[in-house]
């Protein structure tokens, strides 16, 4: 039975909002960060559907974050909707410039080239002492169309914002993935030559997916920066990009909710391993990844429950 994506989105959104009020403060914050970072990983998943993995999503994550940080610093704009819109313009604009260039490469060349672009931004920011250099700059607390909450209310408002954004983007991506061009991108993954013979441009599809990923990276960056309250060049560093790839691999490309679940799982595992194994938390994280890769080589999105939802065309960012 086909379920309407909009209906599923509405149910999911309600569920997540209720969940947000039930969660303790720290868990609500963890969810905010996990969903924001999940958006960036969803961009990588869009690329993975065409068979390319971007190792440089930190570039757009960082652009989005710095857009938020510098706009509030220079112009005093703190409105979350405006900041998000601006970072979409900035990240999307840069994505449009690099997309056509990168779309001519595949595999390791695509990965390395995208990585190098993000490291250029890292290097430039680290050298720019007027922007705080490696120490970065603080980001002012956001406002919501005139509403300026503080403390717990601010955290909750940001949570509601990211939940809404996540569900909307998840639903749109579901529709995009199920559309004709979205399905052709899977064909690019399996056999690019045939796609070209059938009259579609494989490079064009890769470029479009790259621009989508850039926009998602920008949105993830802006929300993370506002939630954390600080941006530094580390946002564009390769380890940050690596984390997004990690989540994308953990999730696999089969399911959208799986991406956000993977992101939440990663944050939870990291948070608790850091507390209980302060000296060996990286080891715990590594073992966890290894186990997932060994048990679920196609990611947690390949678990049957989500596959059925995938075929039903649902977008539910959380189990």
């Amino acid at each position: 039975m086909e379920k309407s994506p909009v209906l599923v989105a509405a149910v999911t959104l309600t569920g997540l909002i209720v969940l947000g009020f039930a969660l303790p403060d720290w868990a609500q914050f963890l969810m905010t960060i996990a969903l924001a970072k999940g958006l960036v990983s969803l961009g990588i998943v869009a690329g993975m559907r065409c068979g390319v993995v971007s190792f440089g999503q930190g570039l757009y994550f960082c652009l989005g974050a710095y857009t938020a940080g510098l706009m509030s610093r220079w112009t005093g704009v703190t409105d979350v909707f405006l900041l998000t819109f601006l970072s979409v313009i900035v990240a999307g604009g840069v994505g449009v410039i690099f997309g056509p260039l990168l779309s001519r490469y595949r595999g390791i060349f695509f990965a390395m080239l995208s990585l190098s672009l993000s490291m250029i931004l890292f290097g430039a920011l680290a050298k720019t002492t007027s922007l705080g250099g490696t120490d970065g700059v603080n980001v002012a607390a956001p406002t919501f169309a005139g509403y300026a909450p503080e403390g717990g209310a601010l955290a909750t408002a940001l949570y509601l914002f990211i939940v809404t954004v996540t569900v909307i983007i998840g639903t749109v991506m579901r529709i995009v993935f199920d559309s004709q061009s979205g399905l052709v991108s899977l064909a690019v993954r399996s056999n690019e030559l045939r796609v070209e013979y059938l009259g579609s441009s494989a490079n064009g599809i890769v470029a479009v997916s790259y621009v989508i990923a850039a926009i998602l990276g920008g949105v993830g960056g802006v929300v993370t920066a506002l939630a954390i309250g600080h941006v530094d060049p580390e946002y564009a560093f390769w380890t940050t990009s690596g984390e997004f790839v990690f989540v994308a691999i953990l999730a696999g490309y089969l399911s959208i909710p799986a991406v956000f679940v993977a992101s939440i799982v990663l944050e939870v595992v990291r948070s608790f391993s850091n507390l209980y194994f302060p000296n060996t938390w990286q080891l715990v994280l590594g073992v966890f990844l290894l186990v997932v890769i060994l048990v679920r080589p196609d990611g947690i999105g390949s678990i049957k429950l989500w596959r059925r939802r995938e075929s039903a065309g649902a977008a539910e960012p959380s189990a």
Partner: peptide, 8 residues
């Protein structure tokens, strides 16, 4: 990194 430290 700073992002992680804010969370922690």
């Amino acid at each position: 990194g700073a992002t992680k430290q804010v969370q922690e």
